[in-house]
């Protein structure tokens, strides 16, 4: 968008200067994805690993049920589609929760005076200096039936028996929410910080009350930040396996855990894990494409 002239200056040097980024993208992004794609079309080896023989078995197993011995007429296999659907649902809820809490938080920080802003931002990021695994385990200890939360409430007499939070969808939600909240707060903060508050004054001047201004002016203007935040929360939530593993039970099994299991120990099925990953990747790509399409439409109009 900015400066057509400067982009022309860099055009010639462009290819050479871009080489490092292409190398990084190639080695760390394209190569692994390509390997994953290839593995998903290979035959599984029972002790983990693959046999180099083309096969569609992994995708077949994902979508179709052919009975115990594989000789019945294929019907749709709902198990894995169900897990995917539940994961999307869980990730969507977590994204919504992060948005509802993250937006006011970001707004609050961005409207403080510039000196205190950095302190607030620092406070938001402090918990994330600790490893995700440790935080998730801590969460488990906090909310389990004999943990401090329940003991505190029991001691106060607010509840008569432990809440039984662990191994529920709610616990998974809490875990996801806590894991990814800053990914929502930071992009929205960046957008709100750039927001020109004279736009709100202009809206008020033109007979618009507070909520109308929020809906018609503020939200549309900071939308890029909101969308970025939602993507940054939704995508990792979708593939998360720590929170569902540690805080959820068998009923809250998510894609991340499904994929993780296929590569763990000797019980796994590498082609199937690779196929599930490819399907997950496709879903994420679709979400991003829809976003990119909208973004372009907004700019060219």
């Amino acid at each position: 968008m900015a400066g057509g002239a400067s982009s022309r200056i860099y055009e010639g040097a462009g290819l050479k200067l871009m080489l490092p980024s292409w190398l990084v993208i190639g080695i760390f992004l394209l190569a692994p994805v390509a390997m994953m794609a290839v593995y998903s079309f290979l035959t599984k080896e029972f002790r983990g690993g693959v046999i180099w023989e083309f096969s569609l078995a992994a995708y077949d197993q994902f979508f179709f049920d052919r009975g115990l011995f594989g000789d019945e007429a294929p019907t749709i296999e709902w198990t894995y589609i169900g897990i995917f659907w539940r994961s999307i649902w869980q990730a969507g809820l977590a994204t919504l929760a992060c948005l509802l809490i993250g937006f006011p938080t970001a707004w609050f920080i961005a409207t403080r005076d510039p000196k205190t802003r950095s302190i607030w931002l620092f406070l938001v990021t402090i918990p994330y200096w600790v490893n995700l695994l440790i935080r998730t385990v801590s969460m488990k200890f906090l909310i389990r039936d004999t943990g401090p939360l329940n003991e505190f409430l029991l001691a106060l007499g607010v509840i008569d028996e432990p809440l039984g939070l662990i191994n529920t969808n709610f616990a998974v939600q809490l875990g996801l929410f806590y894991s990814y909240l800053p990914f929502m707060v930071l992009p929205i903060y960046a957008a709100v910080e750039r927001y020109d508050f004279s736009l709100s004054e202009a809206a008020a001047d033109l007979y618009s009350g507070t909520w109308t201004t929020l809906r018609l002016v503020i939200l549309p203007v900071v939308k890029p930040g909101i969308v970025a935040g939602c993507i940054l929360v939704f995508v990792p939530s979708l593939g998360a396996f720590l929170a569902p593993d540690l805080l959820g039970g068998a009923k809250t099994f998510m894609i991340g855990s499904l994929i993780e299991e296929q590569f763990k120990g000797s019980a796994g099925n590498w082609p199937f894990g690779a196929a599930a990953s490819m399907i997950l990747l496709t879903i994420v790509m679709c979400v991003l494409l829809v976003y990119a399409r909208n973004q372009n439409k907004g700019e060219t109009r």
Partner: peptide, 20 residues
């Protein structure tokens, strides 16, 4: 009386046009 209830309008120094 809050601004949105006053029958006056303002042309702002930096215009404050809604960019979207």
């Amino acid at each position: 009386l809050p601004p949105h209830k006053r029958p006056v309008n303002t042309v702002f120094q930096q215009y404050a046009l809604f960019p979207h």
